[in-house]
């Protein structure tokens, strides 16, 4: 491989093919203990998921980038100690992210920082201004309520809706059984409903849900 090819490989930040099996990932992890290129492949697989997780926990892109970088630097530094028999690699990464985000929240609450940037995660380009304002108000209210939830409930909703993980995968990350995750999901929705006073309007469930952007790299395995 020439220097130029190497440079191109480094600059290839596209989401990787999501067809890797659990065994492929395990082999990559073993290789990554002594090979930075293999770690780069793992990075390419998980960077978007971790970024999304951190972004929804922090609410702004700058801190999400900073913490995502810390997650992967820490993972690189400790990958030799990682044991596949314990938890899957993805769960290990999420746990690092979870701990760093928890520290970040603790530091912020000590320093009493008020965020200046807006938290508007989605964009709908072809939308009338009135409808957009109404929708943003609704979204903002929902996300505000989400951020007031206890940490484990926020984590569950992000892993479920943003990272689209199964209850079994979420259980591995959160250290709970699948049944406990299911139960927590129910309690979380019930708490949010109490918080928002949300009742389904007549005919609401018969409407088609909004179209979502492609999530090729977030597809469930």
């Amino acid at each position: 491989m020439t220097a130029l090819d190497n440079d191109r490989a480094l600059d290839d930040d596209r989401a990787p093919d999501d067809s890797r099996t659990h065994e492929d990932i395990a082999a990559l992890v073993v290789q990554a203990k002594h090979d930075r290129e293999a770690f780069g492949a793992l990075y390419a697989i998980y960077v978007r998921r971790i970024y999304n997780y951190v972004y929804y926990r922090t609410g702004n892109h700058q801190d999400a980038e900073d913490l995502t970088a810390q997650v992967f630097h820490r993972a690189l530094g400790h990958i030799e100690n990682y044991d596949e028999r314990g938890v899957p690699f993805s769960a290990w990464l999420y746990r690092i992210a979870h701990n760093l985000v928890a520290n970040w929240h603790r530091d912020r609450s000590r320093r009493n920082i008020v965020p200046l940037d807006e938290f508007v995660p989605s964009s709908h380009p072809a939308e009338a201004p009135e409808a957009a304002a109404e929708r943003l108000g609704d979204e903002e209210m929902l996300l505000e309520a989400l951020r007031r939830l206890p940490e484990d409930r926020q984590q569950l909703l992000i892993l479920k809706f943003v990272d689209r993980l199964s209850n079994a995968e979420i259980g591995e990350i959160m250290g709970r059984t699948e049944g406990a995750v299911k139960s927590l999901y129910h309690r979380t929705l019930a708490a949010l409903r109490e918080e928002l006073g949300a009742h389904a309007p007549e005919g609401a469930l018969e409407e088609q849900p909004e179209k979502k952007p492609a999530r090729r790299w977030l597809r469930r395995r």
Binding site: L10, G40, S122
Partner: peptide, 29 residues
């Protein structure tokens, strides 16, 4: 069920800045 569908509509994945992703990969690898 209605609330879950609203969450599904609002909690969309975001794409990290491509420059950030490249730069961090360079730094790591």
């Amino acid at each position: 069920l209605y609330l879950a569908r609203r969450l599904y509509a609002v909690m969309v994945p975001v794409e990290p800045n491509a420059r950030f992703v490249r730069q961090l990969k360079r730094e790591l690898v």
